[in-house]
C-alpha cells in the first residue's frame, strides 16, 4: 500500500520561548522543549524554560492548534529523583500534550502518578527493535517511540510492522554516531555526560589554542581537531574528532557532518513513520524558523503528491556537510 498523501507530523525544537513561538508561526505541528535544569538532554546555559514560560508557550501552541511536548529525558541522579518527579508533575500541570522520557524509574512514576499524561519514549532510551519498544509500551503505556539513529529505513519499516505504537524519527540536525543514551564518551573526557548532566562535550571544557601554525581545539585537555591557523576549527564534539588508530589518521568515528534525511521523506512515510523530528534546541531562533519552514513545505509537498526536494539547507548545517546517517546501510 502506498503511503502517498499521508500527512507526517513535524516535531520541532525550541530552546527559548521566542524560538517556540517562531517554530509554531513557521508551521510546526508540534514543538518540543525542556526545563532549564539537568532534567533534559540539552542542558546548556541560557537555554530552556521555567515552569511559567512553559505554561505560556503551551497555551500559545494550543491556541494555534499545535502540540507541545516536554523532554525530561536525562537519567535521574541517585538520591535526587524528586527533581525529575517534580518536572513530570509540572509538565502535566501546564497541560503538555506529552512528556518525553528515557528512564525506567521515571516512566514507572509518570504512568502511575499521571495515568492520563501521554508518554513518549526518548531516543535516549535506545529502544532499537520491536520487542524493546513493546516492552515499554506494555510496561508503561508508552504511545510513541523516538527511534535511535542506528536503524536503516528498511529496519524502521520492519519495526513498524511489529509494533502498535507510533514512531518518530530524526530528519535534520546534529547526528549522534553512537546509540544515544548508551554513550559515556563525554563523561570519559570531561566528567559531564548526556545521560547524567544533559550535556555532551560541554563548552565549559573546551579550549581553542594557537600552536605554531595550527589552531587546536581540545575537550577536557584532549586534542579533538588540529587545523591550519587561518581555518575555522570545528567545535570539538568528541565523536567528530580527528584521531589516530593504528595506521589510520582521520575521523575514526564520524566526519563533522550532520543529518539531513529530507530526501528520504517519502521512504520514511512508506516505512510507517508518524512524525519527523528536527534536532537543535540549542540553535538560534532564526535557524529554527528557516528549518521549520523548509520542512513544513516538504511534508506538505509530500502529502499533496508533489515531489520532495531535499538538501536546501546545507548552509545551516554543522560543518556544512550532511549525511543520511544510518538510514542508508552503506553508512555502517
Amino acid at each position: 500500500m502506498s503511503a502517498r498523501g499521508k500527512k507526517l507530523e513535524l516535531v520541532c525544537p525550541a530552546g527559548t520561548p521566542a524560538a517556540f513561538r517562531a517554530a509554531i508561526d513557521a508551521g510546526a505541528h508540534t514543538v518540543y522543549c525542556g526545563f532549564n535544569d539537568e532534567t533534559n538532554a540539552r542542558n546548556f546555559p541560557g537555554l530552556n524554560f521555567s515552569t511559567e514560560e512553559l505554561a505560556t508557550s503551551v497555551a500559545y501552541a494550543h491556541k494555534k492548534g499545535a502540540h507541545a511536548l516536554v523532554a525530561i529525558n536525562t537519567f535521574p541522579r541517585a538520591g535526587a529523583v524528586e527533581l525529575w518527579h517534580k518536572r513530570v508533575d509540572d509538565a502535566a500541570k501546564v497541560g503538555a500534550d506529552a512528556v518525553i522520557l528515557a528512564d525506567i524509574g521515571l516512566l514507572d512514576y509518570a504512568s502511575k502518578k499521571h495515568p492520563n499524561l501521554r508518554l513518549h519514549l526518548s531516543v535516549q532510551a535506545a529502544a532499537a527493535n520491536a520487542d524493546a519498544i513493546s516492552f515499554y509500551a506494555r510496561a508503561f503505556g508508552v504511545k510513541r517511540v523516538v527511534l535511535p539513529r542506528v536503524l536503516t529505513v528498511q529496519e524502521i519499516a520492519a519495526v513498524n510492522r511489529d509494533i502498535e505504537i507510533e514512531t518518530e524519527v530524526f530528519i535534520f540536525g546534529g547526528l549522534c554516531v553512537m546509540a544515544e543514551g548508551r554513550c559515556s564518551l563525554s563523561s570519559y573526557a570531561t566528567g559531564k555526560s548526556p545521560n547524567m548532566n544533559g550535556a555532551c562535550s560541554p563548552a565549559s571544557h573546551v579550549e581553542y589554542r594557537e600552536e605554531d601554525d595550527e589552531l587546536v581545539s581540545r575537550l577536557g585537555g584532549f586534542a579533538i581537531h588540529r587545523v591550519g591557523a587561518k581555518e575555522a576549527a570545528p567545535y570539538p564534539t568528541l565523536c567528530k574528532g580527528c584521531f589516530e588508530a593504528g595506521e589510520y589518521k582521520g575521523h575514526v568515528f564520524e566526519d563533522p557532518s550532520s543529518l539531513d534525511a529530507g530526501a528520504l521523506i517519502p521512504q520514511l512515510a512508506e516505512a510507517g513513520v508518524t512524525a519527523l523530528k528536527i534536532e537543535g534546541r540549542q540553535r538560534s531562533r532564526s535557524y529554527t524558523e528557516a528549518v521549520v519552514r523548509n520542512f513544513r513545505k516538504a511534508v506538505d509537498d509530500y502529502a499533496a503528491g508533489r515531489p520532495v526536494v531535499g538538501g536546501a539547507l546545507r548552509d545551516l548545517t554543522e560543518g556544512q556537510t550532511t549525511t543520511a546517517g544510518s538510514y542508508r546501510k552503506t553508512w555502517r
Binding site: A179, C183, S184, L185, Y188, G246, E247, V252
Partner: peptide, 21 residues
Amino acid sequence: RIPLAISARCYHARVHGLSKD
C-alpha cells in the same frame, strides 16, 4: 577497559577502509 559506547557502525572496519557488512 570500560565499554563507553556502542554504534551501528563498525570502527574497526572503518579504520581499515572496510564497511561493517
